[in-house]
Amino acid sequence: MTATDTPTRRGPGAATRLAARAGGGAVRLGLLLTALFWLVPTIGLLISSLRGPADISTSGWWRVFTDPAQLTLHNYTELMGNGTITHALLNSVLITVPVTVLVIVIGAMAGYAFAWLEFPGRDWLFLLLIGLLVVPIQVALIPVTKLYATFGIFGSLLGVILFHTAFGLPFAIFLLRNFFAEIPRELLEAGRLDGAGELRLFARVVVPLGGPAIASLAIFQFLWVWNDMLVALIFANSGSAPLTVALQEQTRQFGDNIDVLSSGAFLSMAIPLAVFFAFQRQFVSGITAGAVK
């Protein structure tokens, strides 16, 4: 840029800035509207869950805006009184929590081993593990069913937990191995010189440094398992079915249990959301992990 065209550029510059500010507002408004639009089904579900069955079957949920008296907690009391649903909710927790813990613990240990311990065949084994990432669970359904029948754990909580853990591990190990491999070598060497054995090094240095990655993985793993229906539908029986399966069973061809459905669906959504917001800080720093030392 030469000195002569500097002033001529300043005029449009101010205008551009003004336009940019106005444009920024427009963009922001657009984003807000998009977000609201995106939320409509969820809001509808929430409102439906707060209306009585008779209202739901006769009019749309938006009617509540003109007639707020329709709002009632009846569906939720009904839900809590429904033994199948509460039992299924308990099952969801009994499946999701152990799977998440198992995947994190085993995945972190294996990830550390793949990243920092030297043993013969390590790279081949890791390659094999990456290969397992592309195996869809559908191809394993029948063989695993037969296997479970042999061991007598078909239709049990244990079966569902083991299946989820097995299919969660390749990704967990892959993710954590790559995160742990980014830890500066000198840190681990310093730990070894300080007298730490592998286990202590893992617990006191590697895991604290891997915190963000572990938190992200925990959230994802929790969501996947919580929202799963296919695996539970096949491997759980009526006594061990989680909420997703129990809710699906409430939909019938004629006369849905719409009151239980809407409140149950909202409940099954609210719990992972709570988990997400609890770990949100770590989740965000997990996404940018490694960007800044």
């Binding site: 000198e186 840190l187 060497e189 310093a190 010189l193 007298g195 054995g197 240095v205 440094l209």
Partner: peptide, 20 residues
């Protein structure tokens, strides 16, 4: 011998302090 059994201490170029 393993590093921890040698009774030595090391100062690294990048210091290798435990950040947490």
């Amino acid at each position: 011998l393993a590093p921890k059994d040698r009774d030595i201490a090391m100062v690294f170029q990048n210091y290798a302090l435990y950040p947490h």
